[in-house]
Amino acid sequence: MSNLGPGRGTGQENPPDGGAPRPAGWLRDAEGPPYPPPPWRLVGDLYASIWLVPRATVPLLAADAIPATIAGRALVVTGWALYAPSGVLAYREALCGVVLRAPRVPAIAITHIWVDHPASIAGGRALWSIPKKAGRFSGTPETGAEVTDAQGQPIAALHILPGRTLPWRQGFSLRTVQRSLDAGGGAPVIARLRATGRLGLARADWRFDAAGPLGFLHGLRPWLSARLERSVLRFGIG
Rank of each mutant, 00 (worst) to 15 (best):
S86C: 06
P67D: 04
A65Y: 08
A71T: 11
G97M: 04
R55A: 15
T78M: 08
T57V: 13
V76R: 01
A71Q: 14
V77Q: 14
A56M: 07
V98F: 02
V77T: 09
V77M: 14
R73Q: 10
A56S: 12
G79R: 09
A71I: 05
P59F: 08
P85S: 08
P85K: 09
L75I: 13
G97W: 03
V53A: 01
V77C: 10
Y83L: 07
R73N: 07
T78H: 06
G87E: 07
G87Y: 03
G87K: 05
A74E: 05
V99Y: 04
T69R: 11
C96E: 14
L95R: 12
V98I: 07
A63D: 09
A71C: 10
E93N: 08
V58K: 03
P54T: 00
A63H: 10
V53T: 07
G79P: 07
T69Y: 08
C96A: 14
A74K: 02
R92Y: 03
L60M: 13
R92E: 06
I70E: 13
V76Y: 05
A65W: 07
A74T: 09
D64Q: 10
V77H: 12
I70N: 03
P85L: 11
V58C: 03
A65C: 11
L61H: 04
R92I: 03
R55I: 14
S86I: 08
V53W: 01
P54K: 00
G87Q: 05
V98Q: 05
Y91F: 14
P67Q: 02
A62V: 08
P85M: 11
Y91T: 06
Y83P: 03
Y83D: 11
A65G: 01
L61V: 02
T69A: 07
A63P: 04
L60Y: 12
Y83E: 09
A68M: 12
T78P: 09
P59H: 06
A68G: 11
A62K: 10
I70K: 09
I66G: 02
A56I: 04
P85A: 08
G79L: 04
Y91G: 02
E93Q: 13
A94H: 12
R73K: 12
T57W: 09
T69D: 06
A84F: 13
Y91W: 09
A90E: 14
A94K: 03
L75R: 05
V76F: 06
S86M: 08
A65I: 01
T69I: 02
I70L: 13
V58P: 02
G97N: 00
G72V: 02
S86Q: 14
P85V: 06
S86T: 13
V76S: 02
V58T: 04
C96T: 11
W80V: 03
P85G: 08
L61N: 01
R73I: 00
R73W: 01
Y83W: 15
V58R: 00
A94D: 05
A81M: 07
P59W: 07
L95D: 15
